[in-house]
């Protein structure tokens, strides 16, 4: 609507261009292997883009302060908190969410580990935990218990007391080691 107003008021092409660039950034990104292009509000958070625009509701929102980690995804291969990033900041990036961690019908060793070791209860923190743990194992394939605990410092679980999450990650590390 504003765009039309600008046009009818005879704004020069430069102004219109300014408006399009500044006000509704057009973003193109790859999510779980699929390329998407959308015009988004500047203030749209990446987590809301994933949940509301793309319908990928496995990524959750559990706090307001980048503290809980339930919104953890991979941006260009690294774990980040998608609640603290604008969708526009991710323009041109490749994103993996929990839905895309393993091919459809298969489980990633971490997903398997969480199930085998009872690493989840209500499941709300689980996608973020798994995405964070995947980053940890990519940097450190054979972490100690303490390294696992420190690696999870950005993720809160209220159900498990972390005991079985640690074991789930140990399971995945072991399984991946065998696979290699």
């Amino acid at each position: 609507m504003l765009c039309n107003t600008l046009k009818t008021n005879g704004f020069c092409a430069k102004a219109l261009n300014f408006y399009l660039t500044y006000i509704m950034p057009k973003i193109t990104l790859t999510v779980n292997g699929k390329t998407h292009t959308h015009e988004v509000e500047g203030r749209l958070l990446l987590v809301h883009y994933l949940r509301d625009t793309l319908g990928l509701t496995g990524t959750h929102v559990g706090c307001d302060t980048s503290s809980c980690g339930t919104c953890t995804i991979h941006l260009d291969g690294k774990a980040i908190k998608s609640c603290s990033l604008l969708a526009a900041q991710a323009d041109g990036s490749s994103i993996t969410t929990i839905e895309g961690l393993a091919p459809e019908g298969e489980l990633h060793p971490l997903q398997e580990g969480f199930k085998e070791e009872h690493g989840l209860q209500c499941g709300f923190c689980t996608p973020g935990m798994i995405m964070c743990a995947a980053d940890l194992l990519s940097r450190n394939p054979d972490p100690t218990e303490q390294e696992i605990r420190e690696g999870l410092e950005g993720n809160i679980c209220r159900c498990t007391g972390y005991h079985n999450i640690v074991r789930a990650i140990q399971y995945a590390a072991q399984k991946s080691a065998v696979a290699v």
């Binding site: 980048s66 980690g69 774990a79 980040i80 908190k81 980053d135 940890l136 410092e153 950005g154 993720n155």
Partner: peptide
């Protein structure tokens, strides 16, 4: 600093 995710951004 922060946590893994924060250090990545």
């Amino acid at each position: 600093i922060g946590d893994t995710q924060v250090r990545n951004m």
